[in-house]
Design a protein around this nucleic acid. Structure first.
Lengths: 337, 337
DNA sequence: TTGTACGCGTTATCAT
DNA sequence: ATGATAACGCGTACAA
């Protein structure tokens, strides 16, 4: 391993000058810069990050905490965060909490030890641990997709209530009158979507949709829908609004298993527009949120906060959503009650 | 930020003792350990990673290079790597190359600067850049899923040829005689799968399957299948083997668009068994590889190499695969030629 | 069982 | 435009 001292010696200058030739933070004569560059190339010199970190007090590392990177929603988020990180010369440490408390505590220690300069935190469950909030206090944090630590933290979210409303208006326009909502109770984002849907529904003087709880997963959607159907596979609804796509897909699976066709018998609307929403047959009608953008902007804000040594402004940034109509919704064919 | 010196002062001991009380690498009296622990708790002390890194020469960081974290195959791989990393007290830096050369060069610089102690490298394209190979030489590397740097590097792969054979035997058992293969030419893993399939096919005296090239993506599969059908949507095959699931799904999309039913008209087999393979309708018949395990074992080997300062043994670790029969394959209904 | 002293490789400060 | 020197905070031989 070449050190800065070696480079300096071979180039006949001081380590200080080598450092500045590299960083450009101080004027260096063209002649000197060239000679230094030559020696560096020859030695394949690259400054050691560990030493830079100690000297500067930073790590050029961002932490991204997500509940499940296998959910392509969070994978897309990660790509947005990474892009912003790269643009600013940072790298990204992926922390997949996997809904595991022990794992989260481990990552807290990572944060406490200042292994990263800041954190983008996408919470996956309603319960946020006090330890998390406390530890995060020591370095800048921005919340994405889910607000959990109270209003005092900078957050980037989609317009969830509006998304719920869009889904409802679409189904109402197709003549549906009876709907069920599949939602993960307690998760703010899910609750907001369900509420937006419900509000729009009743504002049209339609019967209040029943809310059925379930995890934010494929299996969660499958199980939730199972709870919605009667013992003889009889249903009293013609539309299903799932507060995320994975749940919607799970629900569709269950519907098909009991012999109900989508969209002929039941229309289904999801939320997120993850990449597989367009791959199913029929394609899933859903509310699209630009999660890449969410991650990108969140990371940008985080980096700005790090670079200026100011905590991220405690603002709530809300991004618009969009209804994507595919094949899982159609005109209501069932008789009105 | 509390330092080790402060803790030492308040506990009335030397920094050395504080260090050892924390690491346990040297005996410390129970009485002293307790007092030190008390002060640390009180100050919320946590040693700074940057300083530890400089002192030890390591970073406790693993790099994971993948072409696309949105592909749940690589997300699952990441989870396996992360698990092994966590178990050994490491964190994982995610490097999503996104098939982008500039991005790869950027990550090379990350590696050269010793920002990570080792790299798990999942190559996503046939062309591997010499710069990559050279830079990786400076720190331990293990290859996963794809062997690109020559046989001198430690690698963990699935039994791709056997997987292709399993797919072929399954289809042959169902009476199929004419198949096409959708493969990403040049990618060793894809080529091996295609070859295994082809070999099994001709060993049954069936006509050699036509290989159609395409990217390892949903769109790639869609486009590849489009190339396989005649201008009047006529086909001369009853079975499709795609060398990954995403391609298979894209191909199915195209098949349905031109009015062909899966599996009634055409049977489809994929490879990987990514999580969405079971979510489609019908579920995708595919060759399962345990990619989590692949990542876990690769990371374990990498960490062992780091901890022992020995380069990873240049072995090729092959993992078994398994055929998962779902709904996209059925008895061949078309007349034999 | 505990302490002293040094080194890790860089950047900031001050001086020239 | 360049150089000398002092941290940065920790781990660890070596000494006691």
């Amino acid at each position: 391993m070449a050190t800065i001292a070696e480079v300096a010696r071979l180039a006949g200058v001081s380590p200080t000058t080598v450092s500045h030739a590299l960083s450009g933070r101080r004027a260096v004569s063209e002649e000197t810069r060239r000679r230094v560059q030559e020696v560096m190339d020859q030695l394949g010199y690259s400054p050691r990050r560990a030493a830079q970190n100690l000297a500067t007090g930073g790590t050029r590392l961002l932490g991204l905490i997500v509940p499940d990177i296998s959910n392509s929603f969070f994978a897309e988020l990660a790509k947005g965060v990474e892009e912003a990180a790269i643009d600013a010369g940072y790298n990204m440490v992926l922390c997949n909490s996997a809904f595991n408390h022990d794992r989260e505590l481990l990552y807290l220690e990572t944060i406490r030890s200042r292994a990263v300069d800041g954190v983008v935190y996408a919470a996956g469950s309603p319960t946020t641990h006090r330890e998390m909030a406390d530890s995060l206090g020591s370095i800048p944090v921005v919340l994405v997709d889910e607000e959990v630590l109270g209003s005092s933290t900078c957050s980037f979210v989609s317009d969830n209530a509006e998304g719920g409303r869009l889904a409802a208006e679409h189904l109402i326009g197709l003549g549906h009158t009876d709907a069920v909502i599949l939602s993960m109770a307690g998760l703010a984002s899910s609750d907001d979507r369900a509420q937006g849907f419900s509000d729009a529904w009743v504002s049209h003087d339609l019967p209040q949709p029943v809310v059925i709880g379930g995890d934010f997963t494929y299996d969660g959607g499958y199980a939730a829908l199972a709870k919605a159907v009667g013992p003889l596979h009889d249903i009293d609804f013609s539309a299903v609004f799932a507060t995320n796509d994975l749940m919607a897909l799970g629900a569709m699976k269950r519907l098909m298993e009991i012999g109900l066709h989508v969209p002929q018998d039941v229309s289904v609307v999801g939320f997120d527009d993850i990449n597989i929403a367009g791959m199913t047959n029929p394609g899933l009608t859903t509310v699209r949120q630009d999660v890449w953008q969410l991650g990108f902007r969140a990371a940008e804000a985080l980096i700005a906060s790090i670079d200026t040594s100011c905590p991220p402004p405690a603002e709530r940034h809300v991004q618009p959503v969009e209804l994507i109509v595919r094949g899982t919704t159609s005109l209501c064919m069932t008789d009105a009650d």
